[in-house]
Simulated scan of single mutants.
Amino acid sequence: MSAKYQIFVSSTYVDLKDERDLVIRAILEMGHIPVGMEMFSAADEEQWNIIKRQIDQSDYYVLIAAHRYGSCDSSGLSYTEKEYNYAREIGVPALGFLLEESVSWPREKSETCPVAIDRLNLFKTKIRDRPVSFWRSTDDLYGKCSIALVKAFNAYPREGWVRASQVQDTAASKEIVRLSGENAELRERILGYERADSEETAITEALDLLRSNFKSINVWRKGDKTWSEGAEVTLYQIFEVLAPELQVESDLVTIAKFIATNAIGISSSEIRSTWPTPRNVIRAILADFAALNCIVPSTRKKPVANTNEYWTLGEFGVKLLAHMRRRRLAKIESLLPIDSDSDSDADVDASVG
């Protein structure tokens, strides 16, 4: 968005009319907005207030000075100096351009009153306190003013003026960007809620299936020559005790032993060391868990000599186990008395276990 700067041009009037017109032309050619003091009559307080408002709205202030102090207010302060003081007071970047003292200058364009000359010299001293340029001719002033303004635009960037349509377009673009971001955030939230609902539904359905499916598991005890009756348990019971072991991975033989000792409840000293539960039953159980996306074959690297089959929890299995553990923890907490102590905690652990 291209901004146009408003630049207030100040000088004494009659003696510097040509120079001021040239500076105004330079500003216009640069694409900016000159405001000349000749547009106003600064001879009364009302017009001075108008000039102050124009300086308030200006981005930069240009002062051209030669050998005239100019018309003064009731206190003896020239309106040119008064404008310069006000611009400095409100923080408008001020650029001073003084005529070099060595340049020949018409007598009719110079002060002859000693008081006015003294005041002009004091004013010039004030101008020199800030960075200032010295000019020798109108053409010289034209070039130096253009260069100084470009430098000021870079060194002291100001707000400037823009077309209302540009502001509206920019505001609309910003609003569109804001609304688009807000819309994307809301869509992501909705998808998150939908995913959470879908995930909760999937967990509920999986738990129902695990609870409603039973497996009769026989065992091979030490010293026996055939299978003996073990127990009938749900897939839920099996997964609840087996899943924590599968958080890393386990091979089939270890899984078979773990089901015999933890799901059926037979002491490890009573069962044979190899396949204490039927291999085909174990594979069927694992196939059911895999069908529910609870477990997956392990992908961890093994030595070449290790030909065992390993299984681990899948992503959904991890979530399912977390859900089951949270429910168990909530159940334990609900059993605690209001004023529980360490002894009652131990009783609860024993009863739940």
Rank of each mutant, 00 (worst) to 15 (best):
I90P: 07
S78I: 04
N154W: 05
S102C: 05
E100R: 12
V162S: 09
E83P: 05
A116S: 15
E159Y: 04
W135Y: 15
I147W: 11
V103T: 09
S133G: 06
R163S: 08
A116M: 14
K126N: 05
T112F: 06
E81V: 04
S104I: 08
Y142A: 03
C145G: 01
R128A: 11
D129M: 15
D139K: 09
A155D: 12
V132H: 12
C113N: 15
G76A: 04
D129K: 15
A116C: 07
Y142L: 09
S104W: 00
E81H: 11
Y86M: 08
R130H: 15
N85E: 13
A87H: 07
F153A: 13
S78V: 05
F97L: 05
V162W: 00
R136F: 13
A87P: 13
G91Q: 10
D129T: 13
G160I: 04
R119L: 10
R88E: 13
R119N: 13
P131W: 11
T112I: 12
S102I: 07
E100A: 11
W161N: 01
E100V: 03
W105E: 02
T138N: 11
K82L: 07
C113E: 13
T125L: 15
S75L: 06
R163E: 15
F97C: 02
W161F: 10
I117T: 09
N85I: 10
W105Q: 03
L77R: 11
Y84K: 07
K124A: 01
E81W: 05
G76L: 08
R119W: 00
V150R: 15
V150C: 10
A155Y: 00
Q166W: 14
N85T: 11
L120A: 04
R163Y: 14
Y79P: 00
L141T: 03
E101F: 06
Q166H: 15
E101V: 01
P157N: 06
A116I: 02
Y142P: 03
A155V: 04
D129P: 04
L95M: 14
